[in-house]
């Protein structure tokens, strides 16, 4: 009896937080998505309707959802492409001192304000900015700029788990592969990559979900680009139920993504 009470005291507050504040908010969003607004007063009317979801399936909003997905996928893939070799160098090649410096280089930007970093990219991307004067061209403000900026912003979330996975990978596994006749590329593909998969999956959950929900960087470097986040923002004061429907869409996408990641088995060994 006593240990049970102890456990209840220990777990009670966090469970209360999780259920009431966290899941509760989600439930409210989900419920609101089925309501509507009074066209004159803009007040929420609590009558059940599927109208919000019907509007989601119009070409305009399907386009926005598709564009948001594309950004999230591109950002995630770019983060992987940059993070895997970088983390490999950090964990396996760099001498101890350099490793510390590189780790700091990855971590320090996390302390800087998100807004400052996004505006820094705006400055770099604008015509006559650093990128323009260095490379003679700039992607300008739009989808490419958003992908670049978000890749920069979320990169640490991919580098850190992959770095940890490289650190955990025993040297003897690489030696065993070479010993059994595996050339470097074979070793990478058959031994290293499978060992990295859980870490890459974990990192991708961050990069994907953060990209999916972002609306600030999009406003700063995206020009007129519309994504799920900006659409929510535009509707939140005038049509809260429709904003909730848009929010539900991103939650559904994220749940589907997590299920897909789980199917690869990557989360089993996390």
């Amino acid at each position: 009896m006593r240990p049970r009470r102890g456990l209840a005291i220990l777990l009670g507050p966090p469970m209360l937080w999780l259920v009431v504040v966290y899941l509760g908010a989600l439930a409210v969003i989900f419920a609101t998505a089925f309501w509507t607004t009074d066209p004159f007063t803009n007040l929420v009317v609590r009558t059940f309707t599927l109208e919000n979801f019907r509007e989601l399936l119009t070409p305009t909003y399907l386009g926005i959802i598709g564009r948001t997905l594309l950004i999230a996928v591109l950002v995630t893939v770019l983060c992987m492409v940059v993070a895997i070799p970088f983390a490999f160098f950090m964990a396996r090649v760099a001498p101890r001192r350099l490793r510390g410096l590189l780790l700091a280089a990855v971590l320090v930007p996390l302390w800087a304000s998100y807004l400052v970093k996004a505006y820094a990219w705006r400055t770099m991307l604008q015509p006559d900015g650093v990128i323009d004067s260095t490379f003679g061209a700039t992607p300008g403000f739009g989808l490419a700029a958003v992908v670049l900026t978000l890749t920069y912003l979320w990169l640490p979330y991919m580098v850190l788990p992959v770095y940890a996975a490289f650190e955990r990978l025993p040297e003897s596994h690489l030696e065993a592969s070479a010993d059994l006749g595996g050339r470097p590329w074979t070793t990478f593909r058959r031994v290293v990559l499978p060992a990295l998969l859980p870490a890459v999956a974990a990192g991708s959950v961050f990069t994907f979900s953060l990209s999916l929900g972002d609306y600030i960087a999009v406003q700063i470097v995206g020009g007129k680009l519309q994504v799920l986040g900006t659409a929510v923002l535009q509707n939140i004061t005038l049509d809260l139920p429709f904003a909730a429907a848009l929010g539900t869409a991103s939650v559904v996408i994220m749940v589907l993504y997590l299920l897909a990641v789980r199917r690869t088995g990557a989360l089993d060994n996390l």
């Binding site: 003897s172 596994h173 030696e175 065993a176 070479a178 010993d179 595996g182 060992a195």
Partner: peptide, 20 residues
């Protein structure tokens, strides 16, 4: 020569079995 170019095989102290 590289390890994969030698006709020897090793039993490692920690076995080094591939977990996946």
């Amino acid at each position: 020569r590289q390890p994969y170019e030698r006709d020897v095989n090793t039993v490692f102290q920690d076995y080094a079995l591939f977990p996946h």
